[in-house]
């Protein structure tokens, strides 16, 4: 246990020189009496691709939901670009941030959900342009141009006039990715974005994610059960277990050469597939 904590700190100081975009500092999260994350400290560098793996209930989703401001940390702080997300410092005191502040910081984060969460009452084009027009304040024409570009990128440029219900799950998820990309977030979060898909549709979505990752500049945090994909895409893999980062490092270490028994057992489950 102590070893791991020290290990975490070493990693932090290593990162100090790089450009850190996301920083969790001693974050604790409890739902009622149930503590689901304990003393989480984690830095993510600009452009870094971090894969989060771990058994069900280990706290992976909670970690990224706190960054998307969908879940409030019980203790500790989260910084984005050196600015606190949930707090504001007033005269040296930490106060809960107001909605205006949170909105400003939140704008740097985007998220793609397991169930796509497209807006069913809007066409694909409007799904992708409503936020840029209303939130970023860009013109309708520019939003359309950007959206078309992103939809082309995910291979759905010809579906702009369709409604989400007219698309397959894989297509809907690709739209959700495009919708998030149009907002040009600095950090993109992906919560098991292929988990709800039929097996034959998983590939098309992973391909899109690989393309985005290959472009390099977007910081990505991905929760995934696709180990091969994690190995291909991630710069760093975090193995979550019982609300703690139990192992972390490049995929060549964590996935190819797991140290703890827990991780070995966890990975063992994927070997047959």
């Amino acid at each position: 246990m102590t070893e791991e904590v020290v290990d975490n700190e070493i990693k932090e100081s290593e990162n100090e020189n790089e450009n850190i975009v996301v920083s969790y500092k001693d974050v604790k999260k409890a739902f009622g009496d149930t503590v689901v994350l304990n003393d989480l400290s984690l830095n993510v560098a600009q452009g870094e691709k971090v894969a989060l793996i771990g058994p069900s209930g280990s706290g992976k989703t909670t970690i990224i939901r706190m960054l998307m401001t969908l879940e409030q940390p019980t203790e500790g702080t989260i910084e984005v670009d050196g600015e606190m997300l949930w707090h504001k410092e007033v005269n040296g005191e930490l106060l809960p941030a107001d909605e205006k502040h949170m909105r400003k910081v939140r704008g740097k984060i985007g998220m793609v959900f397991q169930q796509y969460n497209l807006f069913p009452h809007m066409t694909i084009m409007r799904n992708c342009t409503t936020a840029p027009v209303n939130v970023l304040g860009i013109s309708k024409d520019e939003a359309k141009t950007r959206a078309q570009e992103m939809l082309d990128k995910v291979g759905l440029g010809d579906k702009v006039d369709n409604y989400p219900s007219q698309l397959s799950g894989g297509q809907q998820q690709r739209v959700a990715i495009a919708r998030s990309l149009v907002m040009q977030p600095k950090v993109m979060l992906f919560d098991e974005v292929t988990a709800a898909l039929d097996p034959e549709l998983v590939g098309e979505v992973l391909e899109v994610l690989k393309d985005i990752a290959a472009e390099g500049d977007t910081t990505m945090m991905l929760i995934t059960h696709e180990m091969e994909f994690a190995r291909d895409v991630a710069d760093r893999v975090l193995f979550l277990d019982n609300g703690k980062i139990a192992e972390h490092g490049p995929p060549s270490e964590v996935i190819e050469n797991p140290q703890t028994e827990r991780l070995q057992a966890f990975l063992g489950r994927f070997n047959n597939s």
Binding site: M68, N117, T130
Partner: peptide
């Protein structure tokens, strides 16, 4: 709830979320 969450992920304001996402549905 997921529609509220998607709205947050796109950084809509409260008013925009009501107007563009929730009430039309």
């Amino acid at each position: 709830t997921s529609q509220w969450e998607a709205s947050k992920a796109l950084n809509f304001s409260k008013a925009q979320t009501w107007q563009k996402v929730i009430l039309p549905q």
